[in-house]
Amino acid sequence: MKLNLKIWRQKGPNDSGKLVDYPVDDVSPDMSFLEMLDILNLKLVHDGVEAIEFDHDCREGICGSCSLNINGNPHGPDTGTATCQLHMRRFKDGDTIVVEPWRAKAFPIIKDLTTDRKAFDRIIAAGGFVSVNTGNAVEANAILIPKHNSEKAMDAAACIGCGACVASCKNSSAMLFVSAKVAHLAYLPQGNPERKMRVRNMVAQMDEEGFGSCSNTGACEAACPKEIKLENIAMLNREMLKALCD
């Protein structure tokens, strides 16, 4: 396959950056999107050009490291998959593909396609955990959890924290991410003792990081590689209301 790639190049956080054309040929339809970028990088290095930086790690859709806005679609045109799970057979010979980094004030660009997503770590540190201060792990079956709740909690826990929700949102809102983390623990008895403090602190940290707020457009849900549902945001709102009275 022959492709015309337009890739965002930016030397550093303070550089203004621009889209650069990279025509590539001999792309196999069986390559993954990231492998295609690897091959391009090999060629660039061979030609003495600086390689394109992009985030990746597990390459099997579970770590949340990869990102990329591909033709405006976070994680590419497919739904329910991460960029690393996207294959070149999804494109046609002669296609032009525009590759950009996540765009959000709270995710500053480090270089080329890599962004600083530590804001998510700080939100988790503000309350996305369960404190276990002492003793051994308790017998798993000692705490009874209704099937319905454990399923909902697992669905929310599928969030890999990649930031596609922020990248797809016209407001750069992190509410799908925060709501998944809040809902995940709110459905479980283990999350109960700290639930009010958790939602208050996580939302406060989210606002402090400079993310926007939710307009209920549902773009995040469509972009999410783990198909985290919008109903989690309704739960986040409900949890915030409950946390009003202490």
Binding site: N69, K105, S172
Partner: peptide
């Protein structure tokens, strides 16, 4: 919300499955 957006071209999704409805 406008202040929270990033800078740069930031294209709109090419896949309608990933685009939000007009009203919203």
């Amino acid at each position: 919300n406008r202040a929270a957006r990033g800078t740069g071209p930031g294209r709109r999704p090419s896949n309608s499955d990933k685009d939000a409805r007009f009203a919203s």
